[in-house]
Design a protein around this nucleic acid. Structure first.
Ligand SMILES: [Zn+2]
Ligand SMILES: [Zn+2]
Ligand SMILES: [Zn+2]
Ligand SMILES: [Zn+2]
Lengths: 131, 131
DNA sequence: AACACTATGTAATAATATAACATTAAATAG
DNA sequence: CTATTTAATGTTATATTATTACATAGTGTT
């Protein structure tokens, strides 16, 4: 799971996502890594799929965007929570032990056994609240 | 917020979503309501936007699909939780008072004030667990 | 060498969603 | 009841997001 075991394209895409440090869209990634030899959407999507799978990045579903994981303990993408500012679109990954414990052990009445969750909070970040 | 106050297109779209009773995609809706005179994607998306806004339906972000709200107390779409079966794609809206109370009062360390959340749990439903 | 498995390259296309602009219906204020 | 403004509609075109299909190449195992 270290960066060493990633393939060439996976490394390129991950490097870019880590560098921009904000939610980034697939076609924006594509445009920005074309100088590195990546030419087609599929090359990007394949790398993204794999990076999500191994937990190096996460998809912000409500934005169709990807962010690097900041949170070494988020169990390979199986338990993710984000706060999203509806004004400036800043996204940050929430790592709150009580929250993740609560959700991991949450049991629905219907008895379904969960193995994964994704939670997105929306609001105004501090900067945008002041304005 | 009753069905009476909905516009013609909104009623048509909502009726269809309530009838199919499972997550439904925008273009599937379009194909199925064309006999009612709805011809273009935009007519569907506009109605969907409004219906989401007033809480009659919800968007399942991870699936780009829409479901009717089963849950009269889910505060106009501001606090939603779903369970999603990764095998049969069955989706059901979770209404668990403790969960929603916990999430509504959740405060991030960074001090961001939330006004909305969406939570999606993934797993296997009872039927699919047996197989 | 044979096999399985993962990753790549490339072109075409599918699926999802919005922009722009013209028009009509409904609500409400004077 | 009429001027104003607000919400909804109709239509065409286009933008954005994502996958199918097929051919090829690397990597590790037996
Ligand atoms: Zn993470
Ligand atoms: Zn902000
Ligand atoms: Zn609901
Ligand atoms: Zn199932």
């Amino acid at each position: 799971m270290q960066k060493e075991t990633l393939s060439k394209n996976q490394k390129i895409i991950l490097d870019y996502i880590e560098k921009v440090n904000e939610p980034t869209k697939a076609y924006s990634i594509l445009h920005n890594v074309q100088k590195k030899g990546i030419k087609a959407p599929l090359q990007v999507y394949r790398a993204l799929d794999r990076l999500v799978e191994i937990g190096k990045i996460h998809k912000i579903e409500s934005r169709n965007a990807f962010v690097a994981c900041k949170n070494s303990n988020c169990q390979i993408s199986k338990a993710t929570a984000f706060s999203i500012c509806e004004s400036c679109e800043e996204v940050s990954e929430i790592s709150d032990h009580k929250l993740s414990k609560y959700l991991k052990t949450f049991q629905e009445k219907a008895g379904m056994k969960f193995n994964k969750y994704n939670l997105e909070f929306f609001g105004l970040c501090k900067k945008c609240s002041i304005k």
